[in-house]
Design a binder for these strands. Structure first.
Lengths: 203, 203
DNA sequence: GTCTATACCATGATAGAC
DNA sequence: GTCTATCATGGTATAGAC
């Protein structure tokens, strides 16, 4: 079956491209690099993708679909708002810690300058999760800005990992600062009570 | 005076390189681009810098020195810990909002893979500010992890700007979400009381 | 301190055989 | 669907005159 073989090779290319784009970025990867990783010649890549930009875009979409999908369901579920928030924070933290390539890919995306690409990524990839988290924030604290709250939540989880490469050399760094469980607990504590309180149960 | 002319041209090159590296990154900028921006030929650049990597490194250091310097003094000053924290958050937010090139340069740096460069940046650039902020966090809440607290503070301020390019297309976005004063106030509120409280004075 | 000129190499992409 | 062969372009960097 020609179609099967096509799909197989195409997805194989995407899967092998993701770590390359994640580590050195779009300009850091050459079509030759990708071809070598897949085990074909550069010319073969152009049978599956019109050009390098399209290949990269598809690779980003592929990675997002794969990693972000499972997280959506957590937010719409049953249970008390605080419990759902905590469960989400824990799961997001674990995912970000596990999928290092995915996280770096997100960092590269945020540095992109192309308006159209950013718009389509916002629509196709981020919108659903962002909305769901915004609704949860609205339930928890109706009197505050849901948009800013969502940014703060995701930032609190993501930023420790984004800055890990430099923080390793900064004072007070310990191994537990890479531990997703410790980070999630820290974030939940901060969201519950700010700097003042401890991490006790609350309503 | 030859030395004067030298210093002038060298710093002129650095100052003009910063926005280029900030917008398209190391691999996105060519020596031809930089030369064109400065108004010289590529060959002239090699009189001031040994190679492209060194030019970029010096440009990053130049930008950091220029923007981060003024912030350090805020933290060691007099006054109640909470007041100093609030003043720092407000000033950091304003600076990040103002110096877009600097912020993007920081994002590129975090994606670097070179251990040595990261180490030297940590030592020469981030260490002082990070330590001072850690001390302040230790004063405020002695029973919690100062390192993680510092990361959370800087992340809460920085992340809204890092994600702005995509957030523009996400639900609930308003113009005030780019306003440094609004962001600073939001961050301070979150640090004081978490999600639950309002932004009232506290000790 | 900057220029002209150039060496040398890596890149993205294509044509056409198989 | 993949290969070989190839092209045009643009990249870093250097040599040597001024």
């Amino acid at each position: 079956m020609a179609k099967q073989a096509f799909r197989h090779t195409r997805e194989e290319i995407l899967g092998l491209s993701v770590p390359l784009f994640a580590t050195v970025g779009f300009d850091g990867v050459s079509m030759r690099d990708i071809a070598a990783a897949v085990g074909v010649t550069p010319a073969a890549l152009y049978h599956h993708f019109s050009d390098k930009a399209q290949l990269c875009l598809d690779a980003v979409g592929y990675a997002f679909e794969e990693k972000m999908g499972p997280l959506k369901s957590l937010l719409d579920g049953e249970g008390k708002p605080w419990d759902r928030l905590e469960a989400f924070v824990v799961d997001l933290t674990r995912m970000i810690a596990r999928e290092k390539d995915f996280r770096r890919l997100m960092q590269w995306v945020l540095l992109d300058n192309d308006e159209q690409r950013l718009q389509s990524l916002a629509d196709c990839v981020f919108r659903d999760l962002f909305s769901a988290l915004g609704n949860l924030a609205g339930e928890l604290v109706p009197d505050r800005d849901a948009h800013l709250l969502v940014v703060s939540m995701i930032g609190l989880v993501t930023y420790p990992f984004e800055t890990q490469s430099v923080r390793r050399f900064l004072p007070g760094y310990q191994l537990q600062h890479e531990d997703p469980e410790a980070i999630a607990q820290h974030v939940v504590g901060l969201l519950r009570n700010g700097l003042g309180g401890t991490n006790e149960e609350k309503s």
